[in-house]
């Protein structure tokens, strides 16, 4: 084992794996999706037209459900889940626990504030739909609605991207070796958010909103592919140990072909497989986005 280490392609190979497994992969996927959909919903609310509001509502609901599932995943993954609050409140002093140079610490605050604001945005949306008392509709209107939308937009982008920072602030292979992971996760999060909004908003919301979300998904998929190529091209001698085996196959087949190229084809030729082309493409994008997190997290974990 020591002989192997002596030829390690990077100093990151001397470290131990934190054993972040499938729970964290799910969390990264759902967190990215939540952030992406809140960002897109905020964009539609702030810069779109009145007819976009129905798609924006879909975005907030998706973000709320996704963060409600992914937050607990983070807690379950702790070795001492009953102490999760130690990340928010200093257990010894009762003061707030904030460490601006620790991405997990910042991330916990992003997740908490994000959950609060998408909850408020969703309350406003539910009131508009008449599902809860009218009074809450104020959360979706006027300056208050704009402020909530703007916070959701900004926190959404931060939520989609910070997980890359969590991985970068280690000394692990790939995560610490490539500076592109944060950007990759951000793009993939927005793309997954767009795909989820297409699945739930397609046929039920304004055609103009669907077209814009569809466009955004195409752009983010293209950029994501570009970033993936840059990562692969700059990994050098790390490429073999990381992606030489099964994770390389998952990356090429699952992420690139199934999760990006086929959806791009369907978006480009929306009648290719009948009227279901768009939702099919969106579902494939979600699969690709999940597999991307699996490849990035688990290919490093096994070293």
């Amino acid at each position: 084992m020591l002989e192997l280490l002596a030829q390690a392609p990077s100093d990151t190979f001397f470290t131990h794996s934190p054993e972040w497994g499938w729970l964290i992969v799910f969390y990264f996927f759902l967190g990215g999706l939540a952030g992406g959909s809140a960002f897109l919903a905020g964009m539609l609310d702030l810069f779109g037209v009145a007819a976009d509001r129905s798609m924006a509502r879909v975005g907030y609901f998706i973000a709320l459900v996704a963060i409600a599932i992914s937050g607990p995943l983070l807690i379950i993954d702790l070795n001492r889940p009953e102490r999760f609050w130690h990340m928010l409140i200093q257990s010894e002093t009762g003061g707030l626990m904030v460490k601006w140079y620790s991405p997990i610490s910042i991330g916990i605050w992003i997740v908490s504030l994000f959950a609060l604001f998408v909850f408020l945005a969703s309350l406003g949306a539910l009131a508009e739909l008449g599902k809860i008392p009218e009074a809450s509709a104020a959360l979706a209107r006027g300056w208050l609605g704009k402020v909530i939308a703007a916070v959701c937009l900004i926190l959404g982008l931060m939520l989609a991207g910070y997980t890359g920072g969590v991985l970068a602030a280690t000394n692990r292979p790939l995560w610490a070796d490539s500076p592109w992971i944060g950007l990759l996760f951000l793009l993939s999060g927005v793309s997954a958010g767009a795909a989820a909004m297409l699945i739930f908003g397609w046929g039920r919301t304004n055609a103009g909103s669907v077209a814009w979300i569809d466009r955004m998904d195409i752009w983010t998929i293209l950029l994501e592919l570009l970033v993936l190529i840059v990562i692969a091209a700059t990994l050098g001698s790390l490429l073999g140990p990381l992606w030489g085996g099964v994770w390389g196959i998952v990356l090429v087949v699952g992420v690139v072909v199934i999760g990006a190229l086929i959806p791009l084809l369907f978006y480009w030729r929306p009648r290719l497989v009948g009227r279901w082309s768009i939702p099919t493409a969106a579902a494939l994008v979600l699969i690709g986005s999940f597999l991307l997190r699996a490849v990035i997290v688990l290919s490093s974990e096994r070293i």
Binding site: F39, L40, M43, F47, G48, Y101, P103, L153, L157, M158, G161, G164, G165, A168, A169, T170, N171, A176, P179, W180, I181, G182, L183, F185, L186, L187, V190, W212, R215, M216, W219, T220, L223
Partner: peptide
């Protein structure tokens, strides 16, 4: 130090965030 890897990572992600925002605005 782990934080040595952060500036490049956060910088690229921030540029990406602005870029995606601009793409959205242009699209609208």
């Amino acid at each position: 130090l782990p934080s040595q890897h952060l500036p490049a990572n956060v910088g690229l992600a921030a540029v990406g965030a602005v870029g995606v925002g601009l793409l959205g605005l242009l699209g609208l």
